[in-house]
C-alpha cells in the first residue's frame, strides 16, 4: 500500500515576484519514517513544507502524497492526511480558546460538537495540555502554545506530521520534553529545523536543503559527520557528535 508515501520528482517552485524557491527537489519518504529537513536560512525549507499540503503548488515537477498528486483539486483530501505544525504558534492558534482551536479542524471535517469533544480531549491529553482547554491562546507560554498547536493537528488524526521549527523559542526543559513527545508519535514525520541535535535525536534520516536543492540525504548520524557538506550548507556539527570540550571523550552517538 502506497498510502503514506511522499514522493517528489523534479520539484520546482518560483515565487510570483520571480524569486526561485525550489530548484528540482526529488525524494521519497515511506510510511512511518522520521525525516529531518535541515538547511540554512532561505534554503527553501519552509517553501518545501508549504508544498506538502498544497498551500503552494509546484511550478514544475510533481509531488505525490499517498495515492494523490498535490494539485488544487486534491489538496482538500491531502490536508486530511497531512497535519502541519507552524513555526509561530500564534499563527496557528487563531481561535478564542484552546478548546475551540483544537476543535476547529474536526468541526471543519463535519463532526458535530458531541463527536468533537472526545477527539479534542484525546489530542490535548496526548500533549498533556487538557488543563489549558479554557485558556485564550494569548495567555499561554511559548511551550504551552507549541503543545496546543501540536494537539490541534493531532485532533484531525493525520497520518503524516509536518513540523516547521518545532523547538524554536523553547526553553531547554520544554525542548527536551518536546523531543520526548515527538519520539512517542508513530506518524510519518517531516521536521524542518535548525536544531541539529533535535534532528539527530528524533529523526533517523536527514535531508540537507541548500539553495533550493537537496544537498545530501541519508542516515542522520552519517550526514552530520560529513564536515564538508555541513560547511557548504552553512551548518555546524551537532553537539552530540562533538568530542567533549573538557575531557576530549569521543561522542557516544
Amino acid at each position: 500500500m502506497s498510502h503514506h508515501i511522499i514522493q517528489a520528482q523534479g520539484l520546482h517552485f518560483v515565487y510570483p515576484d520571480g524569486t526561485p524557491g525550489l530548484k528540482g527537489v526529488a525524494f521519497r519518504i515511506t510510511h512511518g519514517e522520521s525525516v529531518a529537513l535541515v538547511g540554512a536560512n532561505g534554503a527553501g525549507k519552509s517553501t518545501l513544507l508549504l508544498h506538502l499540503n498544497g498551500c503552494l503548488l509546484p511550478t514544475q515537477g510533481s509531488l505525490r502524497v499517498g495515492d494523490l498528486p498535490v494539485t488544487a483539486k486534491t489538496r482538500a483530501a491531502i490536508r486530511r492526511t497531512v497535519g502541519m505544525v507552524f513555526q509561530d504558534s500564534d499563527d496557528q492558534l487563531f481561535m478564542p480558546t484552546v478548546f475551540e482551536d483544537v476543535a476547529f479542524g474536526p468541526m471543519n471535517l463535519g463532526l458535530g460538537p458531541e463527536h468533537t469533544e472526545p477527539l479534542v480531549r484525546q489530542a490535548l491529553e496526548r500533549v498533556e495540555a487538557w488543563h489549558l482547554k479554557d485558556r485564550p491562546p494569548y495567555r499561554l507560554s511559548v511551550g504551552e502554545k507549541r503543545r496546543v498547536a501540536i494537539a490541534s493537528v493531532l485532533a484531525m488524526s493525520p497520518d503524516i506530521l509536518v513540523m516547521d521549527e518545532p523547538s524554536s523559542g523553547l526553553d531547554p526543559r520544554s525542548r527536551r520534553e518536546l523531543i520526548e513527545l515527538l519520539k512517542t508519535f508513530e506518524h510519518t514525520k517531516i521536521i524542518a529545523t535548525h536544531d541539529l541535535d533535535l534532528a539527530l535525536q528524533s529523526c533517523p534520516r536527514t535531508m540537507i536543503l541548500n539553495a533550493g536543492t537537496i544537498q545530501a540525504d541519508g542516515p542522520s548520524a552519517a550526514i552530520f559527520s560529513q564536515d564538508d557538506v555541513l560547511l557548504q550548507s552553512r551548518l555546524e556539527k551537532p553537539l552530540l557528535l562533538r568530542a567533549c570540550p573538557r575531557c576530549g571523550a569521543k561522542p557516544q552517538f
Binding site: L50, N53, G54, C55, R75, A76, R79, R80, V82, G83, M84, F86, D88, D90, D91, Q92, F94, M95, F99, E100, A103, F104, G105, M107, N108, L109, P113, T116, S152, V153, M156
Partner: peptide, 24 residues
C-alpha cells in the same frame, strides 16, 4: 504576512469558508 500564514494554517485544517462554533 501574518494574516497570510494564519489563512494557510486554517486551510491546513480543512477550512472551507464556513465557521462552526464549538459551543452552542
Amino acid at each position: 504576512a501574518r494574516a497570510e500564514r494564519i489563512y494557510q494554517a486554517m486551510c491546513c485544517r480543512c477550512f472551507d469558508g464556513t465557521f462552526h462554533p464549538a459551543y452552542r
